Computed example of a mutant assay.
Amino acid sequence: MPAPYPLIDMPPGDFSNIFDFQAINMAAAHNQFIQGINAMVYHAPRIPEEKVQPFVKFSLIFLEHLHHHHTLEETLLFPEFEKKLGQGSLSVNIEQHHDFVPQIDELERHLKDIQSEKVKYDGKALVERIDGFGDIMIEHLNEEIATLESSRMRSAFTEKELKDIDAAFMKEVMASLDLYTALPFSVVCGNPATPWFPPLPAPLKWATKWWFYRRHKECWEFGQLDLSGKPRPEYGI
Rank of each mutant, 00 (worst) to 15 (best):
116 S>K: 07
117 E>K: 15
117 E>H: 14
118 K>M: 13
118 K>I: 13
118 K>W: 08
119 V>E: 13
119 V>H: 09
119 V>L: 15
120 K>D: 03
120 K>T: 15
120 K>P: 05
121 Y>N: 03
121 Y>F: 15
122 D>V: 01
122 D>I: 11
123 G>N: 13
123 G>I: 04
123 G>C: 05
124 K>R: 14
124 K>E: 05
124 K>A: 09
125 A>Q: 09
126 L>M: 07
127 V>G: 06
127 V>R: 06
127 V>M: 09
128 E>D: 14
129 R>H: 13
130 I>N: 04
131 D>W: 10
132 G>Y: 13
132 G>T: 08
132 G>A: 12
132 G>F: 15
133 F>N: 09
133 F>C: 10
133 F>Q: 13
133 F>I: 15
134 G>P: 03
134 G>N: 09
134 G>D: 02
134 G>H: 12
134 G>S: 14
135 D>L: 14
135 D>M: 11
135 D>R: 05
136 I>M: 08
137 M>G: 06
137 M>Y: 04
137 M>P: 12
138 I>W: 02
138 I>N: 03
139 E>D: 14
139 E>V: 13
139 E>F: 15
139 E>N: 08
139 E>A: 15
140 H>A: 12
141 L>F: 13
145 I>Q: 00
145 I>H: 02
145 I>R: 00
145 I>C: 00
146 A>Y: 01
148 L>S: 10
148 L>G: 10
149 E>F: 07
150 S>E: 15
150 S>F: 11
152 R>L: 11
152 R>I: 08
153 M>V: 09
153 M>H: 02
154 R>T: 03
154 R>Y: 06
157 F>N: 08
158 T>N: 06
158 T>K: 02
159 E>Q: 12
160 K>D: 15
160 K>G: 09
160 K>T: 14
160 K>I: 09
162 L>G: 05
163 K>D: 15
166 D>E: 13
167 A>H: 14
170 M>D: 05
170 M>Q: 04
170 M>G: 03
170 M>T: 11
172 E>C: 00
172 E>P: 00
172 E>L: 00
173 V>P: 01
174 M>T: 01
174 M>H: 03
175 A>Q: 12
175 A>M: 14
176 S>P: 00
177 L>S: 07
178 D>M: 12
178 D>V: 07
178 D>R: 08
179 L>G: 15
181 T>W: 01
182 A>R: 02
183 L>N: 11
183 L>R: 08
183 L>Y: 12
183 L>D: 00
183 L>G: 04
184 P>I: 08
184 P>W: 07
184 P>Y: 06
185 F>P: 05
185 F>L: 08
186 S>E: 10
187 V>T: 15
187 V>K: 14
188 V>G: 09
189 C>H: 08
189 C>W: 05
190 G>Q: 13
190 G>S: 03
191 N>A: 10
191 N>K: 03
191 N>L: 05
